[in-house]
């Protein structure tokens, strides 16, 4: 088993955090993982993306040509990465910020009202965690508890942030039925 997840959004949306929480969760669940952030002049408002590879075997390339899953937090992410989506792959996008996603053959597409869900459950800034939880539910990649444990590991020392993260993860997971 090898699953590759590309998270993409604008700087400040928590794109890299999403990948980090995911990679850490998968590692704690006993998978091989590799987390590749784009880096450099990334800052609030710029674009940011990261690739997380999760596998039952040692991971060869951290660089991925065709991701199995794309989590898109903003419109430029869809424009940039939809061409890389192959049949059988999955796109999960934030429908509060993205409209007019073109259909693509054999790509499963899930719109998530991430900003709204995050606002209701915690704080709009937790939209990334809503998306992440929705993704693991859609793909059956990991359990909600695995994400929550990972979040505790990475943010447990910041109590209010952690509480919001837990609520946002819950909301995203529950949104997929």
């Amino acid at each position: 088993m090898l699953k590759t997840i590309l998270c993409s959004g604008s700087g400040g949306q928590g794109t890299l955090t999403m990948g980090n929480v995911l990679a850490n969760a998968a590692m704690q669940e006993g998978f091989f993982v590799s987390y590749l952030p784009c880096y450099g002049a990334a800052m609030r408002g710029g674009t940011a993306h990261c690739t997380t590879s999760i596998s039952s075997e040692e991971i060869a390339s951290p660089v991925v040509s065709f991701p199995d899953v794309l989590i898109a937090l903003n419109k430029p992410s869809v424009t940039a990465f939809l061409p890389r989506m192959r049949p059988g792959s999955t796109l999960i996008y934030n429908e509060d910020l993205i409209s007019d996603v073109p259909a693509k053959e054999n790509v499963r597409i899930y719109p998530i009202a991430a900003n709204q869900l995050a606002r209701d459950a915690a704080n709009e800034r937790s939209a990334n965690m809503v998306m992440l939880a929705a993704m693991v539910k859609v793909t059956s990649l990991l359990s909600l508890e695995a994400l929550q444990r990972s979040a505790q590991d990475l943010m447990g020392s910041k109590k209010s942030l952690f509480a919001m993260t837990l609520n946002a993860l819950q909301a995203g997971y529950a949104d997929i039925v």
Binding site: F32, S34, Y35, L36, Y39
Partner: peptide, 10 residues
């Protein structure tokens, strides 16, 4: 290289 510096793995 920069990629090895930045990637995270267990």
């Amino acid at each position: 290289d920069g990629m090895m510096g930045q990637i995270k793995e267990p």
